[in-house]
Design a protein around this nucleic acid. Structure first.
Lengths: 117, 117
DNA sequence: GCTTTTGTGTACTAGTTAGTACATAATACA
DNA sequence: TGTATTATGTACTAACTAGTACACAAAAGC
């Protein structure tokens, strides 16, 4: 599967085709990190950044922060908070979701979103 | 809400009423940590242990590891893996779940478990 | 052609995590 | 009553996280 770094680099390069302000250096400067660090992150030389930095990066690139966080193997603290509030319930939900086939999860999400479950 | 430490201590003390082998010392020894460390964990003097140690503790106390992990403010790497595989879908599901009232979540979990959604 | 901007290599680090090691005082038990 | 076991206080730490700081060679732009 696509790594965090590859995904970020692809997004940034795509934006750069229309706007030269999306260089490693300038994006790094806008999100508040060193250019060499962002370069290493994009090439997967170091682990993905902190949740805070991923948030700024998502914002800057116009991407969904939850998607970037997931690619980084993290779960947003928002979600962690939701889970932490009802441990047993989520333990049950998680166990079911782990067993469910892909198609079932897709359908579940859709139905929850549409409110017809 | 009940903290991780309080919960663990309550579980352990309950077991201890019927079996003196559930002292801080002996439990600590069986899960492979120092007694002083487990003591501090139970009293909330230090942050909850690593996922690995929480797993052993759950096992030892006959508790659900996902519940203990949730109380520790963590999400199991199992769940993280599930989420990482379908980032956008889970982003959507999470956003809905954040808005749902308690009763709705309870019902959703039950219906998912029973397979009638 | 030269100045500016670029991406990346190398070297370093403050703060955090997840504990250990040992001492000591209270408690249980035989 | 003495010995064993207990919980906890104090002091320390290896490894990891999430970066910084700066130098340098290549490429772009005017």
């Amino acid at each position: 599967m696509q790594s965090f770094g590859d995904y970020v680099r692809a997004c940034r390069e795509r934006l750069r085709e229309e706007d030269p302000r999306f260089s490693v250096r300038q994006v790094a400067h806008r999100i508040g990190v060193e250019p060499s660090y962002l370069s290493k992150v994009e090439r997967g030389e170091v682990a993905p950044p902190s949740e805070t930095t991923i948030g700024k990066l998502a914002d800057e690139l116009g991407e969904d922060a939850d998607v970037l966080l997931a690619l980084a193997g993290k779960v947003s603290s928002d979600l962690q908070e939701v889970i932490r509030k009802r441990p047993e319930l989520f333990a049950a939900l998680i166990r079911e979701l782990k067993r469910m086939p892909d198609k079932a999860v897709v359908q579940l999400v859709r139905e929850v979103r549409d409110g017809n479950w």
